[in-house]
């Protein structure tokens, strides 16, 4: 494992922990899109089916379990926790799941490395992860005012994606036959979706003002 991959995993982990910590300590999920969180739970549930079939490493297994448990916990908190759920702004978070899930699934049926259930689910999870942030970005645009933790959450997710791209470049030059078009293209699309957000994030950071997105 290279340094980019490890740093990518750690920022990914940090993003989830920041979110859980925010929800757990201030008992609020204001500004967080339940739709995005449900899509991430679906992403992990479909991608990590190999937990039952392949063993890669202890690190790999533990991280997968952490992502599964944390993503489902976040969804549970927002939907069912008696205090947290009151802060969920249902009327603003209107993005439809199937708008993203259905095209991703159809695409996975057509473009995949192997036509098996496990492989199609894995490919589906890659496509879905690429676009799962969209409901969150729409919500950010709508509410405009973003609290620090929500901003940091999206920033950490973007950092994770960027580091994964560096990881792929590194692996391409250091490992023989490391060519994965499906992973790369969906990963690139995913990272590009953050570009706009990043622009405003850095502007507000540079000018030392609270992050606000244009309407």
């Amino acid at each position: 494992m290279n340094i980019f991959r490890l740093a990518g995993d750690m920022t990914h982990l940090a993003s989830v922990l920041v979110l859980l910590l925010k929800i757990h300590t201030i008992k609020s999920c204001a500004g967080i899109s339940l739709k995005t969180q449900e899509l991430y739970a679906l992403v992990f549930a479909t991608r990590y089916l190999d937990l039952f079939t392949d063993y890669i490493s202890l690190y790999n297994t533990l991280m997968k379990l952490i992502f599964l448990v944390s993503s489902f916990s976040i969804v549970w908190y927002i939907r069912h926790h008696k205090i947290v759920r009151r802060s969920y702004d249902k009327d603003q978070d209107t993005f439809r799941h199937y708008f993203l899930v259905l095209p991703c699934f159809l695409l996975a049926l057509v473009i995949n490395e192997k036509f098996t259930v496990k492989e199609i689910m894995w490919t589906f999870s890659l496509y879905l992860e690429a676009v799962a942030i969209l409901p969150q970005l729409v919500l950010l645009q709508r509410t405009r005012n973003i609290d620090n933790l929500t901003g940091q959450y999206v920033f950490l997710l973007g950092a994770y994606r960027s580091l994964y791209i560096l990881n792929w470049i590194y692996r391409y030059f250091t490992e023989p036959h490391y060519v994965h078009w499906i992973t790369w293209i969906s990963g690139l699309v995913q990272t590009l979706l953050y570009a706009d957000f990043f622009y405003y994030y850095f502007q507000s950071w540079k000018n030392n003002v609270k992050l606000e997105l244009p309407a």
Binding site: R5, D9, H12, D50, D54, I56, S57, N60, M63, K64, F67, E113, W122, Y164, N167, R171, E175, P176, H177, Y178, H180, T183
Partner: peptide
């Protein structure tokens, strides 16, 4: 060709 090398990623 090890076409599964990306599977060790998260």
């Amino acid at each position: 060709v090890n076409s599964n090398s990306a599977k060790d990623e998260l």
